[in-house]
């Protein structure tokens, strides 16, 4: 029974200590993910704001995001690793590259999604472009922007697991090492831990989303959110962004 094997593996105290122990692996995985998403945010948010505010480069953005979504992560980490001649840094860079599109698309779509009449009213009251961006467009785009961050995080949690194949640490290690020696208890333990980490990180970000999305927007999310999802799903951009949940996520998955 695989399930029993998993319980045995997880309850073995020797698997919870040392550099290969569960806490160390969780810490590694978490570190990769947080670093990659932060780096991606530093690139993706300003770029998304630029494209969303000015409308320039949106075609390129949609095209690039579509290609990245179809890119097989296993192939990507393998090729990065081989071209760089090994090492952890190129693989982490790969994680960052995959983490950017959802954030970029979320930011862009968030800005695009701001009610035109609200933008008009802001201009009519005499706001400059900069004031408009910071005081109106950005706060109003928070739901989709944070949706993008959540997709991005899930993307990275998953890809980091796959990247254990080329030697990255983290929770992919016990899973893939277990496969090599046919220790299915260990394999499934690794998988369950990755799944838990993904769900927990998403919950944490969902909490953060509540904090940064203005209350007025949360109040209308129940009704307008539904309409918004509906409309956007029929447009190409929709496929790259998320609306609070992750379903409509645009990033590649792994």
């Amino acid at each position: 029974m695989i399930f029993a094997d998993m319980v045995t593996w997880l309850t073995d105290p020797s698997h919870w200590t040392g550099p290969g122990g569960v806490p160390a692996r969780v810490a590694e995985h978490l570190l990769y993910c947080v670093l990659a998403v932060l780096a991606a945010g530093l690139v993706g948010v300003p770029l998304g704001m630029f494209v969303g505010h000015t409308g320039r480069g949106s075609v390129l953005l949609v095209g690039a995001s579509n290609v990245l979504r179809a890119l097989p992560t296993l192939g990507l980490v393998s090729i990065l690793y081989l071209i760089a001649g090994g090492g952890t840094v190129p693989v982490l860079l790969g994680l960052v590259v995959l983490a950017i599109p959802p954030i970029l698309a979320g930011t862009y779509a968030g800005l695009q999604d701001v009610d035109r009449s609200v933008v008009d009213a802001a201009k009519g009251m005499g706001m400059t472009g900069r004031q408009l961006l910071w005081r109106v467009e950005l706060p109003n785009s928070m739901p989709l922007l944070m949706g993008g961050v959540r997709s991005s995080m899930l993307q990275v949690v998953a890809t980091a697991g796959v990247a254990a194949f080329v030697g990255l640490g983290g929770l992919g290690r016990p899973l893939l090492d277990g496969l090599r020696v046919l220790d299915y208890g260990q394999v499934v333990s690794g998988a369950v831990l990755i799944a838990l980490l993904a769900v927990l990180l998403d919950l944490v970000l969902a909490g953060a989303q509540k904090l940064v999305v203005p209350r007025g927007l949360r109040l209308i999310a129940g009704t307008a959110g539904r309409r918004r999802t509906q409309r956007r799903v029929e447009e190409p951009v929709q496929e790259l962004v998320t609306t609070g949940g992750q379903q409509e996520t645009g990033g590649t998955r792994a």
């Binding site: 998953a158 899973l175 690794g190 369950v192 993904a198 998955r253 792994a254």
Partner: peptide, 11 residues
């Protein structure tokens, strides 16, 4: 949907 594929494949 949040569960990574590699995890789901073996779960």
């Amino acid at each position: 949907y949040t569960v990574p594929s590699i995890a789901l494949f073996v779960i």
